[in-house]
Simulated assay, not measured.
Amino acid sequence: MGLWSGGQTVQAQALLPYNPELNSEQLEQAGLEMAEEAIQLMRFERPDAAVSRAELSTQLAPERFQTWFILGSLYLQGEEIDRGIEALKQAQTLAPEEAVIRFTLGSAYFEKGDYQTAINEINAGLKIKTDVPTAYFDLGNSHLKLGQYGEAIKAYQKAVSIEKNFWPAINNTGLVKYEQGDLTGALKEWQAALKIDPEQAEPKLAQAVATYVQGKKTEGLKLAEAALMIDGRYGDLEFLRKNLWGDKLLANTKILLDTPEMKAVLLRVQSQPTEETK
């Protein structure tokens, strides 16, 4: 392709690569395609390669918000929160009308522990796009972390009003009500979540704790065993805390998990082979 002209033979000279002249539109398109490749690489669990592709895509198409948004999202998945926020802010500057950027920034600030800024970003996104249940769910979680229980419940209820089978929002409404001292109300929420998906370990274990506290110990132990057989991670109090379980619920969960029956269940669960060792 243009390396030689005529039929002359070139002696003792390295072949020079052909460098096509690409215009800005071609470079931009190449950058967008590279960003798509980054997404595919992440799906194939190749995070380092995905980030490298995404970083290069921002160099090829620096004026397209998509490249910065994908890069920021990949940084967040790799727990590089500050770098993720920086890239997402660049995306937001380029496309202030894109609600998804605001929502993702809200998630980033939540992970950073800056819950008020998370609320501000999510609310800014909801002014642009009002019908996103996951955004209301994240908003509720941020209010929950600040102890703003009434606002948290409102946000969760809004999520469910948009998507009636959104069980995580129903489950977290139960978490709030338990901390408020409304044990009966919390139980109703967890039972409603389990009607949607009976095989979810979190509402099942929460229901088990509340049932045990009510004095129905045999039933509570049975429910707890069933929950832990679904997902043994829920036997770890720190894991529960990360899933927004409050102090009251955690204290009562500890009482349940410290029983001889539940200790035996936990030993059995921990001895089971994981998917990686099967």
Rank of each mutant, 00 (worst) to 15 (best):
G140M: 08
N141G: 10
N165E: 08
K158W: 01
N165Y: 00
L139V: 03
F137W: 13
T134Y: 08
K154C: 00
Q157R: 15
T134R: 15
Y149L: 06
A159H: 12
G150C: 01
F137I: 13
N141F: 00
W167P: 01
L144F: 01
K158F: 00
K145F: 01
L144I: 03
K145L: 07
A155N: 11
N165V: 06
S161P: 05
A159W: 08
G147Q: 04
T134C: 01
I162Q: 12
P133S: 02
S142E: 06
P133V: 05
D138G: 12
D138H: 10
T134G: 10
F166Q: 07
A135P: 07
Y149S: 13
N165K: 14
F166V: 05
N141S: 11
Y149I: 03
A159C: 11
Y156A: 02
E163L: 11
A155E: 08
Y136F: 15
Y149N: 15
G150Y: 00
L139M: 01
F166K: 06
H143Y: 06
I153E: 13
G147R: 12
A159G: 11
A155W: 04
G147V: 03
K154L: 09
A152L: 05
K145Q: 14
L139Q: 02
G140D: 09
L146H: 06
A155I: 08
W167D: 10
Y149C: 09
K164G: 01
A152H: 08
K145T: 09
K145C: 04
K145M: 05
E151T: 04
A155D: 11
Y136M: 12
V160N: 09
F166W: 10
G147W: 06
S161F: 00
W167V: 03
T134Q: 15
D138L: 13
K154R: 14
A159Q: 12
Y136R: 14
K158S: 11
V132M: 13
K164D: 09
V160A: 07
G150P: 04
S161C: 06
S161L: 06
F166A: 03
L146M: 10
E163F: 00
W167Y: 12
G147N: 04
E163I: 09
Q148I: 00
I162N: 07
G150W: 00
Y136G: 05
G140C: 03
Y149H: 13
Y156S: 06
K145W: 05
G140A: 08
V160G: 02
E151R: 09
Q157K: 14
A152N: 08
H143N: 07
F137E: 12
S142W: 05
S161K: 15
P133E: 03
K145R: 15
L139P: 02
K154W: 00
E163S: 12
N141C: 09
K154Q: 14
L139S: 03
N165D: 11
Y136Q: 10
N141D: 05
G140E: 05
D138Q: 14
G140H: 03
E163T: 14
K145H: 04
W167E: 13
Y136I: 04
G150M: 02
G147F: 01
Q148S: 11
Y149D: 12
S161E: 14
L146G: 03
Y156D: 02
E151M: 04
Y156L: 03
K145Y: 01
I153Q: 14
K145I: 02
K158I: 05
A155F: 03
N165M: 01
